[in-house]
């Protein structure tokens, strides 16, 4: 997708009418052992000079039900829905389904794993992955 930052430095399309999209179901490499469907959260990914940011939409996920792991350059995000909230509710009409969220990204480049920042707000998870400082040049003494 092309980036066309406007004067404010953002690329929002505020005047546009929002469209409805069907949630995409997760096609995982490994099957789940627990029943239930997972969905793929919509993501925005952008890079600045010092960090890579991954923004994921996971409505209904609370902080405590969120798992973020970075292993072998693969970033994996797992957000779980607390279904007990739907207890005693009897559906009469449905336009979307609900389920847990999962998505993985293979990261290129070096990320400073110790400094990954995560912020969850209004059902949107923002992960900030700072780029590792390049190894300081080492002076080699010639013997």
């Amino acid at each position: 997708m092309s980036k066309q930052p406007n004067k404010k430095g953002t690329t929002m399309a505020e005047k546009q009418e929002m469209a409805v999209r069907e949630k995409k179901e997760l096609a995982a490499k490994e099957e789940k052992t627990v029943p239930g469907r997972y969905f793929v959260p919509y993501a925005d990914i952008y890079e600045t000079d010092d960090a890579l940011s991954v923004v994921l939409e996971m409505p209904g996920v609370e902080k405590k039900d969120l798992d973020v792991a970075l292993e072998n350059d693969v970033l994996r995000v797992d957000g779980r829905i607390d279904f007990s909230k739907y207890k005693d509710l009897e559906p009469v009409y449905a336009e979307y389904n609900v389920g847990h969220y999962e998505r993985s990204f293979a990261l290129s480049g070096t990320i400073d794993q110790e400094k990954i920042g995560a912020n969850l707000e209004d059902g949107v998870l923002t992960l900030t992955l700072p780029k590792a400082k390049h190894a300081q040049p080492r002076k080699i003494a010639i013997g």
Binding site: M1, K3, P5, G9, T10, T11, M12, A13, E14, K15, Q16, E17, M18, A19, R21, Y42, A43, D44, I45, Y46, E47, T48, D49, S53, V55, E57
Partner: peptide, 22 residues
């Protein structure tokens, strides 16, 4: 209204989140 914003000097690699009025 839903707003999706990016920092000024960011290179956007992936853009799936929708923004706009409803």
């Amino acid at each position: 209204t839903k707003t999706v914003a990016f920092p000024e000097k960011a290179a956007v690699h992936r853009r799936e989140r929708l923004a706009g009025r409803f």
